[in-house]
Structure formats: structure tokens, C-alpha cells
Design a protein around this nucleic acid. Sequence first.
DNA 1: TCCAATACATAAGAAACCAATGTATGTGAA
DNA 2: TTCACATACATTGGTTTCTTATGTATTGGA
Lengths: 112, 112
Amino acid sequence: MYSSELIKGTLKTIVLKLLAEHKKMYGYEITQMVKEMTKDKIQITEGALYPTLHALEAEGILITETEFIGKRVRKYYSLSPEGKKLTKEKLSEFADFMNTMKFLLDIKPKQA
Amino acid sequence: MYSSELIKGTLKTIVLKLLAEHKKMYGYEITQMVKEMTKDKIQITEGALYPTLHALEAEGILITETEFIGKRVRKYYSLSPEGKKLTKEKLSEFADFMNTMKFLLDIKPKQA
DNA sequence: TCCAATACATAAGAAACCAATGTATGTGAA
DNA sequence: TTCACATACATTGGTTTCTTATGTATTGGA
């Protein structure tokens, strides 16, 4: 686990990228996928995720569709057209930011 | 300028790294150096910097010495032994974090 | 049957930052 | 010489964003 301050500000970008790759996902699935992909180094809490998803939906970035698995509700999120545009912007901004930080902190790239 | 959420959580790491490289620096100097090095992409505000410096000093991470330039006070900060240790940890954590994010967001490294 | 996992959600509070403001000195151009 | 800008410190109030805790309900496995 990273110190919590580091992860701040990256949640939105992570969510958007995952949705861009997987078309549609539900909240719990997102938390589990991030946990797996990062080998528990990044854990998205539900208290952080759900409010973010709701906010992005309210902004028209995400679209939802509800599905019933037995009696249990599952709420799928996917990117709206504006969402796809925003995702590209966020990702390129993040890549730029990482290069800037790498330069600023003089971090050597890992051997490929 | 990056969207402000991105920069969150990186301030402490940036300050520690700059102090490790330059032995001693004062607050205003730090803001200007970051501004220059990042070509205005990252601007550290004084409202964020000074409280951080004070906190790090209170924790024993930073040591201060005051100097007078004419009638004007200048407060130099440098790393304590604990500060040097913490800096190494923070930098390696950040490097690790960047690799994790690069993988998660599937970001291709820039050509050298 | 009962605990863990699945799956949603909210609410209270903390952490970290931003914007604004304040004080004071030094400096260069009109 | 005066006035705007740069240097250099600092604090305060508010916002954003996340954490911790809690709540509800269903489902699956030991």
C-alpha cells in the first residue's frame, strides 16, 4: 500500500481508463480489478468510489444501466461520448504530468 | 498548468527532493525553482508551501537557519538526518507508484 | 446456519490544497 | 521620486477529495 496522499487525484483517471478499456463495468468490479492489477498496492475504497461515480454521472461523463442478478441490483457504468473525449484528455495530461515529475525528481526509467 | 487534483500529494516529495539536491533552500526559492524547472506547469502556492515546511520542521524532518539580507529575513531549510532517510523512502515509493500507474493506465514510455 | 463475499449507498470527519489577504523590504523604470 | 513589481515571510477560510465507519440486502460455501 502506498501512503494515501500519493493516490489522491488519480482516482478519476483510473476509473475513466478502466471504463475505456472494458466498455462497461460496475463499481465493485472496479475496486476488485484495481486491487488485482496492482497486487493490493492500490485499494479503491467504496466510500471514495461511489460518490465519484455519481458525480461523473451527474456531469454527463458516465452513463448507467441497471441489471438484476437474481434479486441483487448491479449498476453498470460506461463512457458517454463526452466521457470518451475527457478520458483521452485526462490520460494525456497524466502522461505529461508523469514526465514532468520524472524530470523534477530525476527518476531513472526502469530497464525494459 | 495541470488540473489541481493531480498535483495533490506530490508537494512533500518535491520539497524533500529539492532540498536533497541543493542542501539548503528558502521557501520562495523553492516555488521559483519548481516553476522554472516545470516551465510553469507546476506552481507551488505559498499557502500550500509554508504550512508544509512548518509541519516538516515540527516533525524534525527539516532544520532551519535564519539569515538577514539587508533588513529582510530569509529562512533556509535543510534536511535533518531523519529527513535524508525519509527522502530516500519517499522517492523510492514515488518511483514505484509511477510504475504501477504506468502499468494500470497502460502508458507507453516516451522515446529517449 | 452463519460468516464471508458480493453489491449498493451515505455520512462525518480529516487531510491537503487553493485563493485571498496581510506585512514588509528591495528595485527598476518613467 | 514615486509607483509598480518582485522578493519573502505568514495566516485564514473555504473547497475538494479521500478515509473510516456504518448501513442494507442478497448470495454462496463450510
